[in-house]
Amino acid sequence: MKPSTIKPARWFWPWQDEQAEAWLSEMSKKGWHLQSVSLPCIYTFVSGDALAYTYRLDYMPDSEARKPEYKQIFRDAGWDYIGEMSNWRYWRKLPKPGEKAEIFTDNESKLRKYKRLLGYMVFFLVLLTYLGIMVWRGVGWSSTNDLTIVAGIYWVGAVLYAVIIPVYIVVVFQIWRRVKRLQQTQI
């Protein structure tokens, strides 16, 4: 029988990586195995035998030059690379009986993953806020100069930023909370 594929749409926030991992494992248990990931959040699954795969996501905004070494270390440890979507790298392993498959085996390295993520999200937030301020200034400038069309365009931009910036604030806050929680597990 020719394997079939499905592409269910599913949205995960950047702080929901563990929910995404659990969902992918559930899909594999039903016989749908992740084949590729692509923007915006398109997950392609291929049909096969039901298997208890463990999925793990790493956030790694790394240079292309370092990628071969990175991937090789994971492969040597028995992990299959599925793909990458906005710096998230998707890995999968079929654990041996009794094995708990993890890509991060201590709290410190897991914490570093979320700190990388937090750093990137803070960077975007600062950038968006800067651009947002520029657009707001544009609204004022074009209105006082009676440039109705230009002001209209600036208004659209201003509304967009007014939506995106609060979203990013929530994202940064949630990831920051995650980092704090991980730090608290150290006594």
Partner: peptide, 27 residues
């Protein structure tokens, strides 16, 4: 990397496992 993972498993008598994400970050 692969050698490190295997040797740590042996040296630590199985008490410490090094996952690839942890190892890459450490390197």
């Amino acid at each position: 990397g692969y050698g490190v993972m295997q040797k740590v498993d042996g040296l630590s008598e199985g008490t410490v496992k090094i996952g690839p994400g942890t190892l890459y970050g450490a390197f």
